[in-house]
Amino acid sequence: MDRKIKWLLVILAGAFVFWFLYGQDKAKKTTTVNNNDSLKTSKQPQVTPKPDTLSQSERVSSSQPDSEVQSQSVDEKLEQWLVQIQDRRYSEDPTVEVSSLAMEFESCGNNNNDWLFTDKEPNEKQLQIKNLMDKHCKQLSADYPLLGNKENHPGLQIILHQFSTSTALGDYLQANQFATGGRLHTLEFSKGLLPLALKEKNAQMINMAEWISSFHIKNRLFEEQLIKGEHYEYLRSIQSIALTGLSCEFQDGITCSPSSRFMQDKCFDEEKFCGLDFKQWYQQAVSPGMDADIQILKTYFQGLVQP
């Protein structure tokens, strides 16, 4: 009898325990879930930072091919280039001249600008600007056949180091061409390029500094405390406008013409800007506050030029 009572009590106790753990209102489990829902992670997030270098495939190849054959073709190419650039448009420094022409050719979209209209139909005014641009690019290709030649143009980087330099700007371009990590696309390169480009009064090189610095939304070519604001797109915009504005003063405003890269973009975004040059656009587009910020930047950039 005692044994039966013992077993009965054990079973009752077990049933009570079971009820306590599992048989309550399910909502009460929120307390358990609350505890498990701990938002404080005890470990640091495991995030692998992206290396600040270009991948191997993106670096300019520095491998040395067969010296005999390649040396001959490189010399030939160099000779051809030097003949092409006899009449200088940007600089007496051959490195700077060739780099500037290459930058000018960038706005031609590698001879095919149809990609600009993949998702929209250009209207009449936009087509006019596109045609103007195509005409300019065709002329450029005609004047510099090697520029438009797909076999040669990519090879320009390979032979660029063969060109001589006669300016600090040329030296800088050469020094950074093959620097470790392919520095041509970095903010640091832009920061070094800009004062030299301004000093040499080279519109395309100023354009290049602006273009490269626009790759990342927080790239700044000026000190943080100069413009007391953080709006990323706004700061990028005023930097771009300030630099483009400075470039307008050189080489007859080639970087500010209606078919320039800057104004192409404006025209293709909004028809009303088609046919305007940079200064005309500026008068309509830039509000007073923005204008004041742009002037601050222009003054700062001009101050970077060392005598």
Binding site: I227, K228, G229, E230, H231, Y234, S287, P288, G289, M290, A292, D293, I296
Partner: peptide, 14 residues
């Protein structure tokens, strides 16, 4: 304090 530049504030205000 942070976001707008003093000049940008003028345009935003308008």
């Amino acid at each position: 304090e942070n976001y707008l530049t003093p000049n940008q504030w003028k345009d935003v205000s308008s």
